[in-house]
Design a protein around this nucleic acid. Sequence first.
DNA 1: TTGAAAGCGCTAACAC
DNA 2: GTGTTAGCGCTTTCAA
Lengths: 351, 351
Amino acid sequence: MAPAPRHPTMADVAERAGVSASTVSRTLRGLTTVSPEVRARVEQAARELDFAVSRQAASLVTGRTGVVAVLVPTLNSWFMGSALNSLGPLLRAAGMELNVYVIPDMTERTSFFERLPARRNADALLVFGFDLTDEETARLDHLGMPVIYVSQHAHGRPSVYVDDVAGAVKATRHLLHLGHRRIAFAPTVGASGFSFSSRARLHGYRQALTEAGIPPDDDLVITMAFEDKRGLVEGVGHLLSLRQPPTAVFAEQDELAVAVIHTLRAARIQVPEQMSVIGFDDHQVAEWFDLSTVAQSPSDMGREAGELALELLNEPEGDQTRRHIVLPTRLIPRATTAAPSLPQGEGASES
Amino acid sequence: MAPAPRHPTMADVAERAGVSASTVSRTLRGLTTVSPEVRARVEQAARELDFAVSRQAASLVTGRTGVVAVLVPTLNSWFMGSALNSLGPLLRAAGMELNVYVIPDMTERTSFFERLPARRNADALLVFGFDLTDEETARLDHLGMPVIYVSQHAHGRPSVYVDDVAGAVKATRHLLHLGHRRIAFAPTVGASGFSFSSRARLHGYRQALTEAGIPPDDDLVITMAFEDKRGLVEGVGHLLSLRQPPTAVFAEQDELAVAVIHTLRAARIQVPEQMSVIGFDDHQVAEWFDLSTVAQSPSDMGREAGELALELLNEPEGDQTRRHIVLPTRLIPRATTAAPSLPQGEGASES
DNA sequence: TTGAAAGCGCTAACAC
DNA sequence: GTGTTAGCGCTTTCAA
């Protein structure tokens, strides 16, 4: 780096082009009230000086920062990666920057809500998949910028989420149609958010069972985490040791489903012959495992959320702020679900 | 949102605390030249008004934006997710924001390098895994801020990367020790960056073979992408149809390794009995597949890169700017590699 | 230890 | 169409 290569300012460009700074500003912002010749001169001068507008200075006067902030529990997940992968370029195209706040644990979370660093440094905030307390939500309400809840339904506030309940119903019905009657549900621990989806899927699972005249059995609901090998072995062991063990498992997400399959196979339980397994997501890994699943599209979610954000930013303060976008799911039956091999009945495992 | 809940300014805080704006500024920045009583008054006033400093205004005068920008080919990858997951909180702790530029394709890339939007909007830039042209690198050199190359070695510029060559040597030697002589290497297409690693791993593979007295055979190097099922089938088919087919495959990354295993099994080729497969990464999926692999730690990479960035920012313009950090790898043998079942020799597949 | 004043680089009224 | 002027909200001399 050179000693102090001071960035050129608009004044520099103005001087070089022989115009005023306002004209440079107008030109660079694409306002039409600039004559073609002047525009050409200004653009060339800017190019020659390799000039870039300082957002800082601009936003000081416009009151807009040109950045959209996202609050995420983690970046290391298929869901977040896909969502932000579509959100990023979308914002870029609109001339906005993407600012990311990664909040992996409670400490970070507390400090985030205390200081609210996004406060004056973004025009809108997208909150991904956190299960916020009322207090936290209230705090965000006073942020002074549009806040959009993504991958969760926030009462009375703009949200974008997938229809988790319907998706879970599809998965459960699929198993029911195959003849399963003892169906386990494996939610995953929400240390890092997304427990909204978790609860919605549990709800859909219960609903489908109830509709089929099967009373939900809490013994069949067992929380596990795909990173926790030990917990998996215990959880799966618990299910297998039940008086009436399940013949199918519906895992809250594909990665967990795959981990469950891995654990089952390690215990010499054949999938799907002895146990059907279905996931949720249609994660890349689902294909490798021929995993039956319910597909959702995080890319669509990122896109919808981004578009909604841009809309709210350009909206004439309308009370359109309580919009909800619900995205669909799709059942994808593959090879890890099949009809149960044994006839169902009381004490099947006893004999 | 209220009609226009104007953010309180320092002047507001100053008034409320009965001091000048400068004193508020000094207090909030933790300068010691403020008497305890005044400090207390100011802090309380700030709290009561829920005041937050405007970075925009501050950076206008300090010349520092308080943001670190990262340029990434994608966010939807284990590598990037892990790296940014550790980078984010680290920057937060240092009071910096994380700005992400996702550049998924050539169009976006061209436009990024044309406009260089990070230019006046960040204090440092971390470039992840792109294979930049000399022209692009030169452009970054003139950005007027520290630029750190991550997951790649950039000639004469600060870089953080894993020792891909050594890692690839470990993987290849592992197969050699098991008795393999025909070892394929599967690099993956670098549409979205990371071809630096790709080439380094190829190099390590060749080096290990050469050391073992085996001339590298380009017929055994076949590029595939784990998302491209068709390409996988063709690629694997190609290897199997060789006059002397390989007995082991070293895939550039775990996800590809897993896809290869999936493809092999679909073709009724047993792993590792008929074909050993080893990956690179120690991705989560490696465990589920009992995949032998070479571990690297993207979290460490993110951390090192972040620390280096902070260092360069606080450094007295020293010429320390050409620092290199090389991270280690570790071989993790699991169940997808084993000794070849057939004796090696010419025309083994002919008989 | 504190305050007054100047100004960072830009945009928005308002004139011309 | 284009230039002039007046700040946006901070930090930073410089005085006191």
